[in-house]
Design a protein around this nucleic acid. Structure first.
Lengths: 371, 371
DNA sequence: GTGAAAGCGCTAACAG
DNA sequence: CTGTTAGCGCTTTCAC
């Protein structure tokens, strides 16, 4: 904060040999350590950075001087400017308040921290525009790498921001056409959806709705593809796919619409936390009971789901591990390795929210009369 | 990354007048803009930083040159080194996977971002040691300010790390004896707890347990104080206070212990998200029904609570606003204002999880036999 | 194995 | 209003 003051006239190497006591901002710098130890700054730098070609004597003198002065280590800002490496990773996340995302961020942060990196977290709040501007921001801050869970894989802005930035990136459950060679951690959504569909079909369901999230992100696409494939593999099964948004509103509106239709589903798969809340409130509003009137499966674990009555069948994965894996992938890229993708499993855990449909061939009568 | 190469002999102002094409790392720097515009670097700096004393002509020439070269703005690393300000805020959080914390972080990040600051997020995972080391880390990274939600207000390590760092800080629902003059956002826990206690007492409860969290943080202390005060104000009411940890295990263990005692409570207040999960599983395990066998209140909203049966009475607050307020407080401190505290409300929203105790004077019989 | 020198790219006196 | 100058504190050739 304090403006740099020009020092008298002693600019050259002819400075006075005694130790200069600078009252600057109280912080000890490397030069002071060098002076006290009677060695060159470069030697101090070598010792501190663990350079191999340093004599034991040198190492000791420098260490002692540093300790004596209470030196707190190199000014990272100066080191960053000099080397261009910030040991900082930028994480562009949709919304940290989503528990799934929060777990991913936690896993990533802990892993990065262990490797000496710090994470800058920026939320894009589901706005593709913001993804791009956050990427640009992080580029300006010279982050060494990027962890990306963008809002819209097809956004031109995002693609060009990424291209301009030219920073190693790891995609988190995203598939950017513009960045075909990027590293990525991917969930095997198909496995979970397929298992859930087969379970429901096995119970006798023939009309199954998938209320999916925002269209231009990988989880939505993968889930839809898997659900449709499962339906096609089982003649007579109708899969009603409804992409839209990862919001409570989409969950609620779509559920109401489905219930009101002549072909109401006997089972619903909610494609995310928020969607689930909407589905539950719509079902309650229409007084449909689970699983008597409709069976329910949700994607991604959410804290209290096990205490709902009935407990919810859930397609699970390990988000913290996803974050840790993403971090590892990025670290290995920064260490020079080639980009690579890592696929993590999802699995279906059934529960009492899934049961046989009341009347497999004719189950349009609700539990109570409705509009 | 590329090592700096000494430039021939052209060090002084007598450099060749033509534009020098540096193939460095492809990035345009301010000097190139200055050269192309035929002005001094300092003028470019002034224009770019919006300095008032700049002629229109100058502004235009610089702007044009910058655009022509595709200049991406000042190298923030250099600016940071020079000015000492990083426009970065460090957030030491217990655990971002806690939805309450995540909301706070989101509120803070969005507000900081609007003010041109970026947030570094570090988790301390409930270990006081880590709080201290994270603070030190952030200090080394020269953050301009700190947002703190530390694990243990009494930790010596944290106190000394903070003292050494000497960085403006805003406490988030914490009260550090070591930092009496810090800014803080505080929740008025007493209001919510008092309202809940009075409601329970009004229903006829005489033995109310508060399963509180970790002992050395403000929310725990405030809640305990308010609960005890409410009990004392109502003769005949026994308040069973059980501090411990913000964990599922503490919630479960304590609930089991309370249920097994001769003086089992007729109402329980769970002091946090995680504790709630423990309480619910213990109650389920012992086959106690809510609210028939025990009434339940929880602190801090959690996504699916409204869909539990019965819906949970909850002491609420607005965590996103807390984060935003913390950010504002920090920004105003950085702008030179004196430290100040901001108190945000909490309120009690009752629900069917609270009812009259079955038999106010003798209600030790569980719904079903138990061990 | 160690030291001297040269900047990284920018900002802010200060002088004109 | 604009240019010159002097570094911020460190790392890294390069020569010895």
């Amino acid at each position: 904060m304090s403006p740099p003051r020009p020092r008298g006239g002693a600019g050259g190497p002819d400075g006075p040999p005694g130790k200069r006591a600078r009252e600057g901002d109280g912080r000890v710098d490397m030069k002071q350590v060098a002076d006290l130890a009677g060695v060159a700054m470069s030697s101090v730098s070598r010792v501190l950075s663990g350079h191999p070609d340093v004599s034991d004597d040198m190492r000791q003198r420098v260490t002692a001087a540093a300790k004596q002065l209470g030196y707190e280590g190199p000014n990272m800002l100066a080191a960053m400017l000099r080397t261009g490496a910030t040991r900082t990773i930028g994480f562009v996340i949709g919304d940290i308040s989503n528990p799934l995302m929060a777990e991913i961020a936690l896993g990533a942060e802990v892993t990065l921290r262990e490797a000496g990196y710090t994470m800058m977290l920026v939320n894009s709040l589901g706005e593709a525009q913001r993804d791009a501007s956050q990427i640009q921001l992080l580029q300006q801050r010279r982050v060494d790498g990027l962890l990306l869970s963008v809002t819209d894989e097809t956004s031109e802005d995002t693609a060009s921001a990424l291209a301009r930035a030219g920073i190693p990136a790891v995609l988190i459950d995203r598939d950017l056409p513009a960045l075909p060679a990027a590293s990525a951690v991917l969930s095997d959504h198909a496995a979970g959806i397929t298992a859930a569909m087969e379970h429901l079909i096995g119970l006798g369901h023939r009309r199954i709705a998938l209320i999916a999230g925002a269209p231009h992100v990988r989880p939505t696409r993968e889930r839809i593809a898997a659900a449709e494939a499962a339906a096609e593999a089982n003649p007579g099964v109708l899969c009603q796919v409804r992409p839209g948004a990862y919001t409570q509103k989409h969950g609620a509106d779509t559920t109401l619409e489905l219930l009101a239709s002549g072909r109401a589903p006997t089972a619903i798969i909610a494609g995310g936390n928020q969607i689930l809340v909407g589905v539950l409130s719509a079902l309650r509003h229409r007084q449909r009971r689970i699983p008597r009137d409709v069976s329910l499966v949700t994607c991604d674990e959410v804290p209290l789901a096990e205490f709902l009555s009935p407990p919810l069948a859930t397609i699970r994965r390990d988000p913290r591990e996803m974050g840790a894996t993403a971090a590892r992938l990025l670290l290995s890229r920064l260490a020079g390795a080639a980009p690579q993708a890592s696929i993590l499993p999802t699995w279906f855990a059934t529960a009492d929210s899934c049961a046989e449909p009341r009347s497999p061939l004719n189950d349009t009568t609700p539990s109570r009369s409705s509009a």
